[in-house]
């Protein structure tokens, strides 16, 4: 894998529609994401953010519409395209029966892309990028904290040297300090490897801190789209409520 792989690719979504048992989850979504951009998707729970992300990497098939990743259509031959994409799951998606080292090196080992010694070296290098040391490599996911698991998942995604990284709620279940660290990692990685990043989050500060642009989803449609400043001053009442939500005693 050459370094040329580690530059972002653009993403185009055209007229994407999806429904489950008659319930519309995504309705006619159109979106263009530029190469190298950090694009954040926000919105209330159940607005279709994670479903949208799963479509981008081919884990779900749309009812209609198309997704073009770097000009290639995401379709049945997705396995070819997948070598350019990576996803960090909400739960981390680490294989509990494998150690951290085995999890991070899984892609290289299963596709026989490198010699075992080389894989070990790359794994340690990627772990170092997310500030995990060699002592963590021998641990099992169950021995790690939530934040560490997320960072291992990011390291595993980086091994692919992706041109597009999808993050599904990267800071869910994490305390604000760890969330901040994860946010910094996303930003640093984007600067370092230049991959296009699509981040789904509820975390307003994270979104405002890292995004080049933000899309606000409601009931499967984009109701606001723009830079963090444009989203902050959005006239859409739901966006305003979401960004300024705070607890008040009734």
């Amino acid at each position: 894998m050459s370094d040329s792989r580690s530059t972002g690719i653009p993403l185009k979504v055209r007229n994407l529609r999806k429904s489950y048992d008659g319930r519309v989850v995504l309705q006619s979504m159109d979106l263009d994401i530029a190469a190298g951009e950090i694009f954040v998707l926000m919105g209330p729970s159940g607005s279709g953010k994670s479903v949208f992300l799963r479509h981008l990497i081919g884990l779900e098939a749309p009812d209609a519409g198309e997704i073009l990743v770097g000009g290639e259509r995401v379709g049945p031959d997705i396995d070819q395209t997948r070598h350019r994409l990576a996803m960090v799951f909400q739960s981390g998606g680490l294989l509990n029966s494998l150690t951290v080292e085995e999890n991070v090196g899984l892609y290289l080992r299963e596709h026989r892309l490198k010699a075992p010694e080389e894989i070990s070296r790359i794994v340690l290098e990627k772990l170092a990028l997310v500030r995990l040391g060699p002592s963590d490599a021998a641990k099992y996911p169950s021995e790690l904290s939530g934040g560490m698991r997320k960072r291992v998942a990011i390291a595993r995604a980086l091994v692919i040297e992706p041109q597009l990284i999808l993050y599904d709620e990267p800071t869910s279940e994490l305390d604000p300090l760890v969330s901040l660290t994860i946010g910094r990692e996303i930003l640093n990685l984007n600067r370092r490897i230049g991959a296009t990043s699509v981040v789904v989050t509820h975390h307003v500060d994270l979104a405002m801190g890292i995004a080049d642009r933000i899309a606000f989803l409601s009931e499967g449609s984009i109701v606001a789209l723009g830079t963090p400043e444009q989203i902050r001053s959005s006239p859409v009442p739901l966006v305003h409520q979401f960004l300024n939500a705070e607890f008040k005693e009734a």
């Binding site: 396995d79 997948r82 990576a86 739960s91 680490l94 899984l106 692919i160």
Partner: peptide, 21 residues
């Protein structure tokens, strides 16, 4: 448990066929 906790989805995103693996 692997399905519920997205481990199988993770395999797919790594272009690893869960049936073979």
């Amino acid at each position: 448990s692997m399905s519920v906790y997205q481990e199988i989805d993770a395999l797919r995103t790594l272009a690893i066929n869960p049936i073979r693996f």
